[in-house]
Write a protein that binds this DNA or RNA. Structure first.
Lengths: 206, 206
DNA sequence: TAGATTGTTAATCGATTAACAATC
DNA sequence: TAGATTGTTAATCGATTAACAATC
């Protein structure tokens, strides 16, 4: 019940379950089992049952899980039954791609505002957004109440922009910049540096 | 020594250390300590020393680590002292961004070939690449000996393209598509679905 | 009922931390 | 030498797995 008690590693798996459940649902299934779900995400059935049991009893013995029901439960647990407005900072190729990304709707997110510090880009259009000046981050984000940001600026600017985001009240950053960020306690960061992803695999190659 | 013995969770931290070391080096430092390095990446000094000790003795008591030396060692361990050619499949916004990404050089990677299945894109230019037909994946990748791919196609096409990549001899996939992939043993996948990254944080927000 | 699958407990396994001798 | 920091051991902590009673 108390969220301090739920390990972060369990929380980090729930979105994977949610994504897989929707995929299975898309195949026309109404019911699934921990075994089937586990096979589809590469996690043991026991672990899935253990993870879910942290939050309640969602299944039926002998039957399994009602997919629609479990999806709804996971969405609530993860707080993605609502829609979070998200800011994107940095309108290079990566920021541009995120600003136009179609995969956020139905997953709990909507890009609401985009920033860049390049005068050539400020005031211009990206997707259906007008690019705002990075200098406006604090006022604009505070005003809108946005708590989530995606960071796509060069590494050299990332910490400075992060500081602005903190001042603006942002509490969660999806960081594409190739650098570790320093943030106050209570602020979450997820790292998506593509080079790190690749370097985690080459060790295993010949 | 035997790589079966090194836990994957340790391997996954080494690229973080490498990135931080380069950052510290960029500030003009020649020597660092497990404490300083740990502070910069948010990991305990003890853990960093333990992780590194799996591969040898890289430091000096009382002094710390020679940054240049440790960088070189980590690059060798991770096999990124060489340059890996990488294929990008899917020339939507995300694939486009990766094809033009400047951050791979000096980190061990170079985009070498890009694919799409859209006739309107095949033969066209993205960055300095000519877009090849997805149908050519097996022959072209086999011929070039490429072992690493980045997958940026829609979820509905991802498994099918993955199967082609397997047939082509690819052993490592950086997957941007919002779906769990099924791959044979010995093939590595790293997942970078942006929605998953965001959903791992909203639980902690109010 | 018979078969299947959950939720949960206990056992196992693995990772992290604390502490310190060694030594630069 | 005195101070600092490594590499490593042992202790602690946490996560995963196996097994099964409960029950649909």
């Amino acid at each position: 019940m108390n969220k301090q008690e739920i390990p972060d590693i369990i929380i980090s798996r729930l979105p994977i379950y949610l994504r897989a459940l929707r995929h299975i649902q898309g195949e026309g299934k109404l019911i699934t089992s921990s075994q089937e779900l586990g096979a589809s995400v590469g996690i043991s059935a026991a672990q899935i049952r253990k993870d879910l049991s942290q939050f309640g009893e969602f299944g039926k013995q002998g039957t399994g899980y009602d997919i629609t029901f479990l999806i709804d439960q996971l969405r609530e647990i993860l707080k993605v039954e609502r829609v979070w407005n998200v800011a994107v900072v940095g309108m290079g190729d990566m920021g541009h791609a995120l600003a136009r990304y179609q995969g956020f709707s139905d997953r709990g997110f909507r890009v609401a505002i985009v920033f860049d510090n390049d005068p050539a880009k400020i005031g211009g259009q990206v997707g259906h957004f007008v690019v705002r000046d990075t200098k406006e981050i604090v006022t604009a984000i505070r005003k809108s109440g946005i708590k989530v940001a995606m960071l796509c600026v060069p590494a050299a600017a990332a910490q400075e922009v992060t500081n602005l985001l903190m001042e603006a009240g942002v509490k969660a950053i999806l960081n594409y910049a190739p650098i570790s960020l320093s943030v106050p306690a209570g602020v979450r960061v997820q790292y998506l540096d593509p080079s790190i992803g690749l370097q985690r695999m080459t060790y295993y190659l010949d």
